[in-house]
Amino acid sequence: MSAMLEDERDDAIRMIRDSAAGIAPRGGDRKRIRALRFQSPGFDPAVWRQMGEQGWIGLRVPEEQGGAGLGMGAFCALAEELGAALAPEPLVHGALSARLLAEAGATGPLERLVAGEALVLTAWQERAGSFDVPGTPEAPRLFLPMADGAQSFLVPLRQGEGFSLILQPAEGADLTLEPTQDGGSFGTLRPRGGETVGTLSAAQMEAALEEAALGTAALLLGVMDQAFAMTLDYLRTRQQFGKPIGSFQALQHRAADLKVQIALGRASVESAAMLCDRADAPAAQRRAAIARAKARAADAALLVTRQAIQLHGGIGYTDEADIGLYLRRAMVLANQFGTAALHRRRFAAAQPEVEA
């Protein structure tokens, strides 16, 4: 990448982070997060519209189709900020639908989605622990986040070597909801009718899901980074035996270990994003980088947030303590778009000669 292009990329990422602070500040409006927990639809439609107005939902959609046309570096920077703020709005899932609709040429639904006027969720997953898209016509589609707030569902159906995309209205849908640890919900959809809005190849579908997996890794990076920052503040202010507990060497060692895990997670996410933004990147190399980033981010986020609870002491285990919100979010995000174990297998398959 030339110096000029690298400067442009860095400027775009800085602007994205600055714009995120206006809607979802890193410190977070945790009163808003708590007010939305275990309520329908689990997110704020007004904030979703703001995200559309900012161009976030269509960040990866080409400009000629109404999007921002930015790269994965910018998208991951945005996702990290939203993860740090615990924003419950399902941006990664909305962006996945936007990319699929754009590639299928479905102009009408795409316009409403990227404007934040509607939430379209892609109903692709048929079983837990899988990254495959069987596209079985009548199979229930699982793990649809905040499905109660969706206006429609994008259902891929297998058609030869590719997929036809069915846009099914949420009204009248056979949908069941289950609460999640973080106060949101997962929906199970049983496909029934709808309008065919386009077709996609298997390669297009896989590439879109891989980008969603990387976006989820960036969300996890934001969650663990902010949880760690809160924990450091607590260690500096909590007094025991007349001095801050952060001065105790044993706790310093634990904090240092967590900082290393966050740094490794950040390096994996950022290197994968840079690779995705290279037009000449080999598919296997890209697949391995994304798999490594998602596996590392999932494991590290669970480790950091659990350790953060422990470092807060007894108060960390109460629901009133904000630090617990970060562990709950990490638990929900860790398995979305593939578990850590699944992505380690994908990494090994893509680069068998490299130790995972």
Results as ranks from 00 to 15, higher is better:
residue 322 D to L: 10
residue 302 L to H: 06
residue 293 A to F: 03
residue 304 V to S: 02
residue 296 R to V: 14
residue 304 V to H: 01
residue 296 R to K: 13
residue 280 D to A: 14
residue 270 E to I: 09
residue 298 A to G: 07
residue 289 A to I: 03
residue 320 E to L: 13
residue 270 E to G: 04
residue 297 A to I: 08
residue 319 D to P: 01
residue 323 I to P: 02
residue 312 H to A: 05
residue 281 A to M: 11
residue 290 I to L: 10
residue 283 A to V: 15
residue 306 R to A: 11
residue 322 D to I: 12
residue 298 A to F: 01
residue 294 K to R: 14
residue 286 R to F: 07
residue 302 L to E: 12
residue 289 A to P: 00
residue 288 A to G: 02
residue 272 A to F: 07
residue 310 Q to A: 15
residue 279 A to Y: 08
residue 320 E to S: 12
residue 311 L to C: 10
residue 298 A to M: 02
residue 308 A to F: 01
residue 313 G to E: 10
residue 306 R to H: 13
residue 299 D to E: 15
residue 273 A to E: 05
residue 275 L to Q: 10
residue 282 P to S: 10
residue 293 A to P: 01
residue 292 R to H: 12
residue 298 A to V: 03
residue 287 R to Q: 13
residue 314 G to R: 14
residue 316 G to V: 10
residue 312 H to V: 05
residue 268 S to M: 15
residue 287 R to P: 01
residue 313 G to L: 11
residue 320 E to W: 09
residue 317 Y to G: 00
residue 303 L to G: 04
residue 270 E to M: 11
residue 308 A to T: 02
residue 268 S to N: 15
residue 322 D to A: 11
residue 273 A to W: 00
residue 313 G to N: 09
residue 282 P to R: 12
residue 278 R to D: 15
residue 323 I to T: 01
residue 300 A to F: 04
residue 275 L to V: 04
residue 321 A to C: 15
residue 313 G to K: 06
residue 297 A to K: 03
residue 323 I to W: 04
residue 322 D to T: 11
residue 284 A to K: 09
residue 276 C to S: 14
